[in-house]
Every structure is written in C-alpha cells, then in structure tokens.
Amino acid sequence: MSDATGFEPKIVAYVCNWCTYLGADLAGTNRLEYPPNVRIVRLPCTGRIDFNLLIKTFEMGADAVIVSGCHPGDCHYTAGNYHARRRWTMFRELLDTLGFEMDRIHFAWISAAEGKKFQQFITETTEKTRALGPYTAYREICEASR
C-alpha cells in the first residue's frame, strides 16, 4: 500500500446520508475493496456541509477532502445539493485565490446504486493524493501556530 517513504494519505470524505453513504454501503455489501485511507463522515445532506468543516479538516492534518452527495434531481430534501453546488462553485474560487492546492479538494455525485463508482472514486482520489504527497504547506501553517 505505502510508497517508498511510507506516506499514507489521510482523506476525509463528507458524504450525505441518503445517496453517497448508501453507495459506500453498497460497495461494502458487494465486497468491493477500496483503500482504507478514507475516513467517512456522514451528514444529512450536502447542503448541510459547512465550509468550515473543510478548513477544520485540513487543520487536523488531512491531505485531501471529499464532498459527495446525491445527483442533481435526487436530493432527499429536494434541493440541498443544488444549494451545495452553488456554494462550492464560489468556495472553490475563494480557495483558489488563497492559493490552496485545489487537487486536494474533490467533489462527486454518487448515488445509492453506485457502489462501483464509490469504489473507483475513492481509489482514484487516494492514488492522486498519494502522488501529491502530504499537504506540507498547510501542515507548516498548523505547525507554526502551536
């Protein structure tokens, strides 16, 4: 699993209760294997995922963050994911202006039926993050703030 330096990326995935979490469940019941680098946090809806959580996640040492929920049209609460889509469109611009490493922040629509997509997405994200290495720039900031 680990590369020569022993680096194992830490990834936190914020997923919605109704689609992506069930997608992960499906991956599990289908015995689809994916890297154990991802820690899943279940929230009611992507519309509930506060941007401060993403920042906190990096502060606590994550190397990448995933946000995933229902496909457009499928939201359990009708429109939570539409609101989220707008919010992340703007938030990504802000982070880009601040010079965040944007390839450490991932978004996906994964439905309850997409166990396979969940597996692939987690695997790809883990491999990409492994290639990037630890998020040193952010860790330096946290280190300097002790």
Binding site: D50, F51, N52, I55, R87, M90, F91, L94, L98, I141
Partner: peptide, 25 residues
C-alpha cells in the same frame, strides 16, 4: 469552537476564509 480565536496564522486563515465566504454573493 469552529475557528481558533488565536491570532496565529492558522486561526487567521480560518477566520478570513469564514469572513470572506459569509459575504459570498
């Protein structure tokens, strides 16, 4: 505590992200 109140670079970055983004749109 969502955002560190300390004026460290970590706390400041989190604060300014929150301040700016709460103004989005």
């Amino acid at each position: 505590t969502a955002i560190d109140t300390s004026a460290t670079i970590k706390g400041n970055l989190a604060w300014h992200i929150a301040r700016a983004f709460h103004q989005a749109g």
